[in-house]
Amino acid sequence: MIPEGIGRDWHRNGREGQAVSSDRRFQGRKAIVTGGASGIGLGVATRLVSEGAQVAIWDMSPGALAKARDMIGGGVTGVRVDITDPDAVQAAQEETLSALGGIDILVASAGITGPNTTTWEYPIDAWRKVVDVNLNGLFYCNRAVVPSMLSGAYGRIVNVASIAGKEGNPNASAYSASKAAVIGLTKSLGKELAKNNITVNCVTPAAVRTPIFDQMSQPHIDYMLSKIPMGRFGTIEEVAALICWLASEECSFTTGGVFDVSGGRATY
């Protein structure tokens, strides 16, 4: 479901930082949000639409896509895609181009956590799956949209990494490693596109209560909360606000950047 506070008319809540804008800064822009049928992706897609964008939500679940479209309303196209399949990603890119007429923005937020266990006991198949979704799938999506952005001489790519990619969370080695790799990929691609009016940045959230919590053990959730100086989890609205600035025209002299949204947890 769409988190409370997300919708056409956003409000401000000082404690939770739910500041919203009613302007139309994304008017005429075409965006892709991967993992956009739930969690942070859904929050970002909702805000982009509320500010004028046409959005293609990429997700694996037809049911979740239909529900997200119904919740957000007009301005949304649902595209079913398995991002771990490069051919499927390319097909989704072509379907999106046909539906929207262009691609200006990519927010790559699809991801999984994998099991919570020690590195030496980590199942090989689970390791490969986490890396395939969080790193390879994100790479395929970044790779697929760049040619269209180059042809349009404009683009904004925002990759969702994690504070775990900076610090490394115990009992989450695959997740931490994959998110560290996303940071490295973002920096490389940002430099490659720096002269093309295409910015590439990433965000590194601490824990935000979304359906991804269902993939984690309670001790691991408790550990993540204990590391946040603010003493609370982040909100979808707080992360979406930062992502949407990075996806906007205002973000014109920042690329290859890594933006903390961790309640003070980040150590660098």
Rank of each mutant, 00 (worst) to 15 (best):
M1Y: 05
I2E: 15
I2W: 13
P3R: 07
G5C: 11
D9R: 15
W10S: 15
H11Y: 14
G14D: 15
Q18R: 15
A19D: 13
V20G: 14
Q27G: 15
R29V: 02
A31H: 04
A31P: 08
S38Q: 13
G41M: 01
L42F: 02
V49L: 09
V49M: 10
E51R: 13
D59I: 06
D59P: 00
M60A: 08
S61Y: 06
L65A: 08
L65K: 01
L65T: 06
A66M: 05
R69K: 12
D70Y: 00
D70Q: 11
G73N: 10
G74N: 11
G74R: 11
T77S: 12
R80E: 15
V81T: 09
D82W: 01
I83L: 12
T84M: 13
A88K: 02
Q90R: 15
A91D: 15
T96L: 09
T96H: 12
L97V: 12
S109D: 05
I112Y: 01
P115V: 02
T118C: 09
T118Q: 08
T118N: 11
E121C: 07
R128W: 08
V131G: 14
N136R: 05
N136Y: 10
Y140N: 09
M149Y: 07
A153T: 13
A153W: 12
R156W: 08
I157C: 08
A161T: 00
A161S: 06
I163D: 04
I163Y: 09
A164S: 07
E167I: 00
G168W: 00
P170H: 02
P170Q: 03
A177W: 05
S178N: 05
S178F: 01
A180R: 14
N196E: 06
N197A: 10
I198D: 07
N201R: 02
C202L: 09
P205L: 04
T210I: 07
P211L: 06
D222W: 06
Y223C: 11
M224I: 04
I228D: 02
P229M: 03
P229A: 07
P229D: 01
M230G: 08
M230Y: 11
G231L: 15
G231H: 11
R232A: 02
G234M: 03
T235G: 06
T235Y: 09
E238Y: 04
V239L: 09
W245M: 09
L246D: 01
S248G: 11
S248L: 12
S248N: 07
G257K: 12
F259E: 08
V261W: 01
G264A: 08
R265M: 12
